[in-house]
């Protein structure tokens, strides 16, 4: 084939276009139901489910709460939430390393929305892939355990830039690790100066009251104003 038969086609289309459109549908749904939606992201073992358990218990009965659990294969996390008598549904992603907006949309009809004020979506344990996929949430919350090391914000900047809040978990381990907590926080702030940072320990309970109170404020803001 001679060169002159080559022609260029301009496309300029977003690779995540289909996901983003579906995410907007989800976002409108949450908004209509005056339900705050949180996309909880963190690496495996950061303590996402432990934080969820403590948070849901700490929020008490003021709000209607529900959870979507993302996991590649198991339903262990969903079982832990169900034990608290909180509505929870599991999405098994199989080989996929993240939730997408279509997976979330598919199970939305299974919840009793008129009773809900907050929906927490626990993503697949991974600091990388979930950061690129909008689920239609109000905001992303990133959980990082301090034992993962103070270089992690710099290594995974996208999630720290895109999250509204960072919860630094396992703060009680500080004396037993080499982590430089001040450096960790400085890195997070350099990447995202407006981010809220909470230091908590799900084991000792340290800092959980402050985090839960902040989240309750976010839930009320959506509930009252829509």
């Amino acid at each position: 084939m001679p060169e002159e038969n080559l022609r260029e086609i301009k496309v300029m289309a977003n690779l995540l276009g289909a996901n983003d459109v579906q995410a907007e549908v989800n976002r409108n749904h949450f908004k209509q139901k005056k339900c705050l939606a949180v996309n909880l992201i963190g690496s495996p073992g950061a303590g996402k489910t432990s934080l969820l358990e403590k948070t849901l218990t700490g929020l008490g009965t003021e709000f209607g709460t529900a959870v979507i659990e993302g996991d590649m294969f198991t339903s262990r996390d969903a079982e832990r939430i169900a034990a608290l008598n909180i509505p929870v549904l599991q999405i098994n992603t199989g080989s996929a390393c993240h939730l997408d907006s279509k997976m979330v949309n598919k199970i939305l009809p299974a919840f009793a929305w008129d009773t809900l004020d907050v929906m927490i979506i626990e993503n697949v344990g991974n600091l990388v892939c979930p950061a690129d996929f909008d689920l239609g949430e109000d905001f992303k919350a990133v959980v990082l355990s301090i034992a993962e090391g103070d270089d992690k914000p710099e290594k995974y900047p996208v999630i720290f830039r895109n999250a509204k809040v960072a919860v630094l978990n396992k703060i009680d381990l500080e004396p037993f690790t080499e982590v430089d907590l001040a450096k960790m926080k400085a890195q997070i702030t350099a990447i995202h100066p407006e981010i809220k940072i909470f230091e908590v320990s799900c084991r000792t309970g340290q800092g959980l009251a402050e985090w839960t109170a902040w989240l309750a404020g976010e839930i009320r803001a959506v509930k009252e104003t829509g």
Binding site: N5, R7, E8, V11, M12, A13, L15, L16, E194
Partner: peptide
């Protein structure tokens, strides 16, 4: 100041194709 708007660097685009 810290209030920055990212105007480039977050895109994932199919820009163009060359076909015959």
């Amino acid at each position: 100041q810290s209030g920055l708007e990212i105007i480039q660097g977050e895109e994932l685009l199919l820009e163009s194709l060359e076909v015959e």
